[in-house]
Design a protein around this nucleic acid. Sequence first.
DNA 1: GTCTATACCCTGATAGAC
DNA 2: GTCTATCAGGGTATAGAC
Lengths: 204, 204
Amino acid sequence: MIENNQPSKKTRIRKDRREEILQEAGRLFGIHGFRGTSLSSIAEAVDLTEPGLLHYFPSKVHLLQGVLSYRDQQDSEKYNALLDAGENTIFESLEDLVAKNEKIPGLVRLFTVLVGESIKEDHPAHDYFLNRYAEFRKGLVNQLAIFIESEGLNADVDVNQLAPLIGAVMDGLQIQWLLDPEQVSMSDSFNLFSEIIVDYLKKQ
Amino acid sequence: MIENNQPSKKTRIRKDRREEILQEAGRLFGIHGFRGTSLSSIAEAVDLTEPGLLHYFPSKVHLLQGVLSYRDQQDSEKYNALLDAGENTIFESLEDLVAKNEKIPGLVRLFTVLVGESIKEDHPAHDYFLNRYAEFRKGLVNQLAIFIESEGLNADVDVNQLAPLIGAVMDGLQIQWLLDPEQVSMSDSFNLFSEIIVDYLKKQ
DNA sequence: GTCTATACCCTGATAGAC
DNA sequence: GTCTATCAGGGTATAGAC
């Protein structure tokens, strides 16, 4: 008996064509950068022609913005889960985050490659990254204050200078790790950093 | 009396056409990246046509390599001068380096933008940066050992994990500073970092 | 929703004259 | 040492058919 047991075309595995496109585009942007990725290579990766792809996202820049907000959405879920999880301190949460990142090189690459390109003021992701870092620093300043408070420390450290430092270590380790994963362990170096900072705060 | 006091064409201000090209190419690579910079834009900047430019550097990749080794040469002179200067510790030298970098955003940009692109394994600067970081870490490991020795510390820190950390802070601060120079001071944050690390080493 | 066809621009690079 | 002319290729995006 010849029956078609495949799911109907509408309910196919491809949950959502848009989402599939965003994933592939993100993967390719992470490898070649935004400028280095052609629409046709993305179209090919999702089995579409170029105009077919542009039916979902009217331009390459729209596609980039789609990728960034798609990733952001997933990221913030992950990050909030880390912060909420039990009685973790901010430093334990950050250590977890770095450890998790070490398992998803593609995503780490995406941000590291794009942020380099986006230093140019008219790059379509420039403002995105500018805001992202400002928000990240703001969040850290708050959490550091909470940490100092809850541990009963009276550290006279300027958390406004400490916050960029913590982001810097994460970014800088990503660069070295992506270039040379055999030689550089993000987790090991970050954990050492974290330990040093905590020591410093407690010592004062 | 009408005499031509201009220097002859041969001895013109333009010391060397090649050097002029390397400077302009470096400037443009730092803004737009390697992929984002066209040969014609470089040619225009030095008042040449495209084939005229290719007379000095047979291809765009040759030009990039020229830029990198040209900058390296100047860099190593500067870096060695810092290390040799008096009785500076490695940390004092690094603080000086960061302070100097803060005065040359163009050069900082060049390396930050290019390293992002060069994570891709077949990028023409990939091996260059791979080696550059490996060398940098190696140098730091040595200098950290010298520091620990000369200060009479018996720190049981793993300098192999500390070295990537120091490079990471410098790179990461550069990113945030280039994106948002009003909000982030490389020097202030790096000096805090330096102080924390030195404290940590002495405390043990 | 996806295609073919196409417009139009910019790219790196070469050949060959001056 | 620098130019004009030219090439082949790839880029984004649009018009319009199915």
